[in-house]
Amino acid sequence: MSSPTPAPRATGKRKTRAPAASAETTAATAVATPAPAPAARLKRGTTAIDLRIYRAVVNAVMSHRLPPGTHLGEADFCELYQVSRTTVRKALQRLAHDHIIELRPNRGAVIASPTPEEARDIFAARRAVEREIVPLVIRNATPASLQQIRAALEAEDQARRTGDRASWIRLGGEFHLLLAELAGNQVLLRFMSELVSRCSLIIALYESPGAPMCENDEHQDLMSLIEQRKVAEATALIDHHLLEIEGRLRLGEPERKINLAEALSGF
């Protein structure tokens, strides 16, 4: 990165310097897929490369390319991103804080593996949060926000029609994060950011291998109810939708050897 051009010497009236692009903006252009909401705000001390590593892991988790139990070697990240171990550890600490990974003694970082009991608790919490989010989305709905939802649904449908399972799974989670953003409550958005990522881990761990890609009718139906401002019906549908997802899960941890470079490719 080149050094900034020195500011011109003042000649009476002080000129206002345009704000520099934030680290988040810089990182966003480096990530090939839309960034999930957990990275919506930079924490103090976070750099663009920290954020890029964080987003890459979260996106790979949401796409089920990094299943629970996968070991994340610091040396692999150093080689992939050409950064120091200090930088990698900062990203891993943030991922651990958000319960995406676990930092285990003598084993290092691994993708978190929720137990069946944790899975039930996480889905129950998510249903409670989304029951609050949907009425807020309807209350705050504008032509622009409705268009954002339609665009998200179109992206999901495109991934399904082309058989891009990884993108379809990720976009399904991002649809729910978009609703949380449009609700306009930053606390609920932070809760959802963690819950969606943890639900992705649970689905990766407990979903039946080779489960077919289903139609996206419930997201489309929810969109129709939001447009019609039917609060009770939309809230009941989101609850049913999440119960259906949880009901399809089965116990059993897959044994898969994961190539970290391959899983993070494209992020």
Rank of each mutant, 00 (worst) to 15 (best):
P114H: 08
C214E: 14
A39C: 13
R55V: 14
F175H: 13
S208L: 14
E174Y: 08
L182Y: 04
A261M: 05
A20R: 13
R170V: 03
T16L: 15
S84I: 02
A27Y: 04
K13C: 01
E244W: 06
A32I: 03
R131E: 13
T33A: 14
A180Q: 11
G163K: 06
L260Y: 03
E181S: 13
V58Y: 02
R52Q: 13
R229G: 00
Q148C: 09
R55T: 11
L260M: 08
P116W: 00
E132S: 14
D121S: 13
T115K: 08
T115C: 04
P143N: 05
A28V: 07
L153E: 10
A119W: 02
P34F: 00
W168L: 12
Y206R: 02
V58P: 00
V31L: 14
G12I: 08
R107N: 08
E207I: 05
D50K: 02
T87A: 12
R198P: 10
V58H: 07
G210Q: 08
T33Q: 14
P209W: 10
A39T: 02
P105A: 05
R256V: 15
N259W: 05
A30C: 07
A263W: 03
T115G: 05
T33V: 05
R165I: 13
F175V: 10
R127Q: 07
L92F: 15
T162R: 09
R150Y: 06
E262K: 11
L103F: 04
D239A: 11
D121K: 09
N216V: 00
C78L: 11
L242D: 01
R17M: 15
R52K: 14
G45A: 03
I238V: 15
A39H: 11
P116R: 08
V196H: 07
I100C: 13
A124L: 12
L205G: 03
R198H: 09
S167L: 13
T11G: 00
T47H: 05
L189Y: 01
Q93N: 12
Q147K: 15
L42H: 05
H241W: 11
H219W: 01
P116L: 03
R160G: 01
C214W: 07
